[in-house]
Design a protein around this nucleic acid. Sequence first.
DNA 1: ACATATGTTTGAATCGATCCAAGATGCAGA
DNA 2: TCTGCATCTTGGATCGATTCAAACATATGT
Lengths: 358, 358
Amino acid sequence: MASLTAGNRRPVRLADIAKAAGVSHGTASNVFSRPEIVREEVRERVKAAAEAMGYGGPDPKGRLLRAGKVNAIGVATAEPLSYFFDDPFARVMMASISQACDATGAGISLVSAANNEQLAWNIQSALVDGFIVFCIEGGSRLVELARERKLPFVALDLDSEDGAVAAIGVDNIAGASLAARHLTDLGHRRFAVLALPFADGRTGLVSPEQVRSATYAGTRDRLTGYLQELSRAGVDTSKVPVYETANDAASTNAALETIFAAKEPPTAILAMSDKIALVTLEWLSARNLNVPNDVSIVGFDGVPESAVSEPPLTTIAQPIAEMGRLAVKAILDSDGRISRQLLPVELTVRASSAPPRG
Amino acid sequence: MASLTAGNRRPVRLADIAKAAGVSHGTASNVFSRPEIVREEVRERVKAAAEAMGYGGPDPKGRLLRAGKVNAIGVATAEPLSYFFDDPFARVMMASISQACDATGAGISLVSAANNEQLAWNIQSALVDGFIVFCIEGGSRLVELARERKLPFVALDLDSEDGAVAAIGVDNIAGASLAARHLTDLGHRRFAVLALPFADGRTGLVSPEQVRSATYAGTRDRLTGYLQELSRAGVDTSKVPVYETANDAASTNAALETIFAAKEPPTAILAMSDKIALVTLEWLSARNLNVPNDVSIVGFDGVPESAVSEPPLTTIAQPIAEMGRLAVKAILDSDGRISRQLLPVELTVRASSAPPRG
DNA sequence: ACATATGTTTGAATCGATCCAAGATGCAGA
DNA sequence: TCTGCATCTTGGATCGATTCAAACATATGT
């Protein structure tokens, strides 16, 4: 009994069962994987032996090596793992990815790491059939690491010029134009831009050359879209402050402090994410500035939270669910070819935008 | 070139590299796993061969078998995978689990399935070092499946009497008492209970014998706590309607329709989850019933959303972060012994509860 | 010149299963 | 009794790596 309960380690393998039941390992294997081809009497005997020895079924580690396919896809990011559950955009994306996985029976492995070295190792040793890479900060490194695994992978929301990586993204330039156009149509002339990072680990006012050397093409494209449309409407874009945030409350609040300390604060804010926009909404409300009467704001992403904020947010809605579905499909049906898809976005007008005062 | 680009499949193994570089597989292996012990000249030669043949590094599948440890923990539920990203309670729990995993460098595998058969297979073949099991509906089956793998596992929020399974839960009876006591102290006498499921796949008004035969001990305990406290305060508990919901909007709304169709509708509602309570808040607001003046309501869970609802929700806060941390610890430091922990909850009073009118 | 120490490389064994061609067994019909 | 045909069962090969004791090579000390 003692040996059963304590069982030092658990070195009970299929082969042990086979020996105990007096059959070959081939037969023992069949008992578990194709029970119908083994004679009932033998089957029962093997099962009994397994039960008696506390065998937990064929170890997937062994099976895996032979089978080749893991039947799981890895979702990777350079953020902490909790990003998947905290960030609104990530959450919606993950929900759609997981629906697609459910439909095909594939599992999901979350891959991330505290530091860069760990990250490399975790990607190299992830047991997956392919990767979906979330390209926020540290995107390029992540893509590089994923590529080295030589497994199918797609980058989400990466507008890299690098044609050698499969990517699913949205038309950032068109989306940003849409946002800016909406505000200029309403009559706004004084703008500020709250941007996502252009490069790693920076925040603050952005200079044109910083924009040119941006690591993140997505951020740059959105800015391009904004500025193109603004200058088309006759706004002097050199006067439009562009603040880089880390897509979090702290850096956004800091940017807002600076922006609204100006002599002529903006009447309209272009935010590159709904998260930034929602933080802005709170900041403004705490300062008794009314949205949309004092300040209009347009977000980007179209996360569910944007529909229930106070006031509900005008935003550029990305087809998040569609992106997730396509990403999973790209991994599972991967034919080795790389494909890049640019999905359309649309303007969702809600209550955070209105004509400027007066 | 053609063979390089197309490369029919990808049967390039470490052994191929070794042969190409003219070294043994032992040495080739060392080049990747302990580069410092192989002479530089050889190391470069092997790396060059790997590069030339498009080798993506040692396949984790192979390594795994030898190493034994996967370095990932599985989180399982009988709900669809998207539950992890949709449900507020699950989200907070996952965030804390993922923080704990990040801290130790472990990965997370999400395990679930569309149907029961798939679920069994997915659990049996999950590549993990242990399981954390979310025990909502279908909990017992899930626990059984996980136990069969003979891996360390903990059940979250399962108040099973089965002492043979490790579990981390909260003191449901005490929590429920706290909620009920708060409302009786405020002077309420007419109550309704919106319950979580007592058994699979049912909703609607619950009879006492249904309660006795409850599959889910957690639900039963919460009800016990409610009713104990109510009768202590002199309320005739046989007159308190108890409605089983599926913890979703549809079944909760249906319950509310019935409850408020009564001649003497309740002045106070005890909801077994914040999700139910939040749905109730919306339903009441749509019917122009004021919370807390017309109806008081107390939730259960203490999810972040409960703090920002309109009005903010009085609720029983579970130490969700602590539970997640403990669960991960239980798996990673598993010493083979099973442990059951019952954590305390606390009443968080916010604006959804007040004395009844008049 | 020889023993000793140090640094590299080798090749067999191992991890835990699945697959499959070939062998064994049992039974019906000639 | 022998052949033919099912129906199991067997044992070796395989999946792709890591590990380790032993072999080998080179340098150091005496």
